[in-house]
Simulated assay, not measured.
Amino acid sequence: MTSHPEYAKEAAQYAYNDMYKTDSPVYNLEPWLYQKEKSYCSKYVYLAYWFGAAHAALKRFITGFHYIMPHHLIYDFSSGYSPADIYKVTE
């Protein structure tokens, strides 16, 4: 997130220290977005920003019944906070 690098750092620290080391979420594709106990890759990224950095960076889903799809994750960020490609595996 080039426009707000502090949020990217805070989200990464939260993901590692709080979610990974402390919560140890179970991998599961459940639609309850704001529950950390059961998670999956793209939801993990969303929640790291939601709980660890800034709510303003993300779109809020009122009911919390929502899947964060990997190919759509960039659209779940609010305007002005979109993540940018910094590293690429392929061209």
Rank of each mutant, 00 (worst) to 15 (best):
A57M: 00
K36E: 05
K43T: 06
S78N: 08
P31W: 04
M69H: 11
S82G: 14
Y44H: 07
D18V: 13
A54K: 02
S39H: 06
R60H: 08
I62G: 07
N17C: 04
V26R: 13
F65T: 15
G52N: 02
A56S: 08
I68R: 01
A53C: 02
A57Q: 00
K38S: 04
I62V: 12
T63P: 03
Y81P: 00
C41A: 07
P31F: 02
A53Q: 10
P70Q: 08
T63L: 04
D85E: 01
A57F: 02
E37W: 11
A84P: 03
Y34N: 10
V26L: 07
F61P: 04
F51G: 04
S39D: 12
G64F: 07
N28W: 15
I68W: 00
G80H: 04
D76S: 14
L33W: 08
P83I: 02
Y34H: 11
H55W: 01
K21M: 03
L29I: 15
Y20S: 01
D85V: 14
D85C: 12
E30N: 12
Y81N: 07
Y67R: 11
S78K: 03
K59H: 02
S79N: 11
Y67C: 10
L58A: 12
A54N: 10
L29M: 15
P31C: 04
H72R: 14
I62L: 12
Q35K: 15
G80N: 07
M19L: 15
S82H: 15
P83W: 03
Y40K: 01
M19Q: 12
A53G: 09
T63I: 02
R60P: 05
A56L: 09
I68K: 09
V26Q: 10
L29V: 11
A56I: 10
G52H: 12
L47V: 06
I68T: 13
K59R: 01
S82F: 14
A48F: 13
W32K: 10
Y34D: 14
P70H: 12
F77N: 15
Y46V: 03
A57N: 01
N17M: 06
P31E: 07
H55I: 08
V45F: 04
K21E: 01
S78D: 00
L33N: 14
G80Q: 04
F51Y: 07
T22V: 07
P83C: 06
Y49S: 00
G80A: 06
P25T: 07
Y40V: 01
M69G: 03
Y75M: 12
Y27V: 08
E37D: 13
A57R: 05
L58C: 14
F51M: 07
M19P: 07
A53E: 05
Y27S: 08
Y27R: 03
Y40R: 03
Y40S: 03
N17A: 12
H71Q: 09
G64N: 09
P83L: 08
F65I: 15
L73P: 01
L47Y: 10
D76P: 13
F61L: 05
I74N: 14
P25S: 02
L73V: 08
Y27P: 02
S39K: 07
G64R: 13
K38T: 11
W32D: 06
Y81L: 05
